[in-house]
């Protein structure tokens, strides 16, 4: 049975400085609460893997916890740039950040390859694109049957994957609904997995073909209502688009950012997330 933990204990025992970590969730179900716990514990020198770094990595990078970022779209979706990530890339603030940049197709394929236990992903991509000239991990293989040149990237195998999901049952089986993104692949590709959930129920009562991760694929489960905010949990609360719009102002300035992180992350704990979504819940 997957063990239910307090968030502090799950993060402390599983994530260590220097590890490669994937906090996944494609716009939906981004595990913000777990990331904030990593920030509070100051676990640093991390390689952060995520298709869309989003606010969650903007915050971790701005707090100086990342040595390297592996990503495919470093924007605040629909709003603009990620200003803390940008400051790190352009000005090495608060520390230099190594980047490994891919396309979405490449990262999605690489997670799938990781879950499948393969060393690399093969796909038809990067045709004429500039990334293959600046990222040595984008290479070419020739199809042995047709002779077609295809793109190859290494499989993603994180030390730890962290995701947020809607429900777990008492045994620890986890249900993910809505935009399921790459979370299943990220968990199955990783050496260890932490899952935070909105709700713990007696039985999942799920349709037979929905996305369920059996308890034995997960190392630690944590009950964190609201744990995706300002991302969302389908069926529980909508995306806090106003918070995403606001983030652009908060992250624009180093001091404003620092102050916000002190108030909302360093001097808060995971229980704050439930109240952050309480007003949003009326809208679903």
């Amino acid at each position: 049975m997957a063990k239910f933990h307090a968030l502090q204990d799950a993060v402390r025992t599983i994530i260590r400085p220097g590890m490669s970590v994937a906090f996944e969730g494609f716009t939906h179900l981004i595990p913000h609460a777990a990331a904030h716990e990593v920030i509070r514990q100051g676990i640093d020198d991390l390689t952060l893997i995520r298709m869309t770094p989003d606010l969650v990595y903007d915050q971790m990078i701005g707090m100086g916890l990342a040595r390297k970022a592996v990503f495919s779209y470093a924007g605040n979706p629909g709003v603009g740039l990620l200003r803390r990530l940008r400051d790190a890339v352009e000005n090495d603030w608060p520390r230099a950040l190594e980047i490994e940049e891919h396309s979405h197709a490449a990262m999605a394929n690489a997670y799938e390859a990781g879950a499948a236990g393969l060393p690399m992903a093969v796909f038809r991509g990067y045709l004429g694109a500039g990334l293959k000239d600046v990222n040595p991990n984008i290479r070419s293989v020739t199809c042995p049957f047709t002779g077609e040149a295809l793109s190859a990237v290494p499989a993603i195998r994180p030390d730890v994957s962290v995701i947020h999901a809607q429900k777990a049952d008492r045994r620890g089986n986890v249900l993910i609904e809505g935009i399921v993104g790459v979370q299943k692949e990220a968990v199955l590709a990783a050496k260890s997995a932490i899952v935070t959930v909105e709700e713990v129920v007696e039985q999942l009562d799920a349709h037979t073909n929905v996305c369920v991760l059996p308890y034995w694929t997960i190392d630690a489960l944590v009950h964190v209502p609201g744990g995706a905010h300002p991302s969302y949990a389908h069926g529980y609360y909508p995306r806090d688009n106003a918070a995403y719009l606001n983030w652009d102002k908060i992250a624009a300035d180093r001091d404003t950012f620092g102050k916000w992180m002190h108030e909302n992350v360093l001097n808060a704990d995971a229980s704050a997330f439930a109240s952050r979504v309480s007003q949003l819940k009326g809208e679903t």
């Binding site: 494609f26 298709m51 709003v79 979405h104 999605a108 399921v180 909508p238 688009n241």
Partner: peptide, 29 residues
């Protein structure tokens, strides 16, 4: 209009929602 490409309403009103690897492999590629 969604603010992001992954707003919940896109999923609520879709015929089907598939995993991102499937999106890029089966449907686009």
């Amino acid at each position: 209009l969604p603010l992001s490409i992954g707003d919940g309403e896109l999923c609520d009103t879709a015929v089907t929602t598939v995993p991102v690897p499937e999106m890029f492999r089966y449907w686009l590629q």
